[in-house]
Amino acid sequence: MSFFGFGQSVEVEILLNDAESRKRAEHKTEDGKKEKYFLFYDGETVSGKVGLALKNPNKRLEHQGIKIEFIGQIELYYDRGNHHEFVSLVKDLARPGEITQSQAFDFEFTHVEKPYESYTGQNVKLRYFLRATISRRLNDVVKEMDIVVHTLSTYPELNSSIKMEVGIEDCLHIEFEYNKSKYHLKDVIVGKIYFLLVRIKIKHMEIDIIKRETTGTGPNVYHENVTIAKYEIMDGAPVRGESIPIRLFLAGYELTPTMRDINKKFSVRYYLNLVLIDEEERRYFKQQEVVLWRKGDIVRKSMSHQAAIASQRFEGTTSLGEVRTPSQLSDNNCRQ
């Protein structure tokens, strides 16, 4: 473009109109680094300016048109060449012509649908970005700006507790209960493990949060399991009749809302894995899916309303929990 100082070169800049007031959110990039991006929600308008600054004010810049795009896309890492765009909006800012001086163009995408949450995973990435392009005969000038989208949910209507009796016949019977089946990202899991029968020499017990990312369809489905948290809830040998309380604060862990079949490309699900370890390091476990959701930071209507919601999960335990028939607790057979 501007080899040896000849020709014209231009700096492109994308500025949001509400950059001063808009919230920023931390988001992990592909290389694991965390960076702050402007935060948007579904239906919000994205507006701003594309600024062009000419490096050489005495010369003109010829172009074949200037445009701005708003793009939401899913990249599957095993299929790098193909990006699946689920949102793609274009605004033309200028017809083919020439620019003689630095200049700014306003743009506005009103009430943009942003149906999914931004996500960077092991095998997949869902991103939203603005892209300004100055089309030129040889090489386009392109500037991108990533934004982050959070999807908000409201308090789930049906949020029964998870209660189940599991075990190995005549060796170990436990009953576990988690107070809800749907937790928001800053929630607390309150639960208990009740020992009905202990004929195995249990040494300790932990609860893991497992994230399972599923990508692809049909025969090419990839599952990627990551243990997000490992939390010891009991140390020592339990006896019959004992109950172990659980209180696990989710705020400290890197979690996203549960995502099911996002654009038929991927899913992200979360499981609570209860693991009992015996004296010989054999592990007995039971996995249970929990749904995670992002709660809106909407101003609280009234504290009493909040309190009423909070207390709901402790009262009337009879109407909540479903008790299923005892199922076999898995055993990975002592791989030492």
């Binding site: 639960g191 195995i200 040998a237 006896v239 004992e242 309380p245 209180r247």
Partner: peptide, 23 residues
């Protein structure tokens, strides 16, 4: 207050608590 509460548990009887373990 709500978040620091526990779920209601059955009390353990003395025999289970102090008797010989069944394992």
């Amino acid at each position: 207050v709500a978040d620091t509460r526990r779920l209601i548990t059955k009390p353990q009887n003395l025999n289970d608590a102090y008797g010989p373990p069944s394992n």
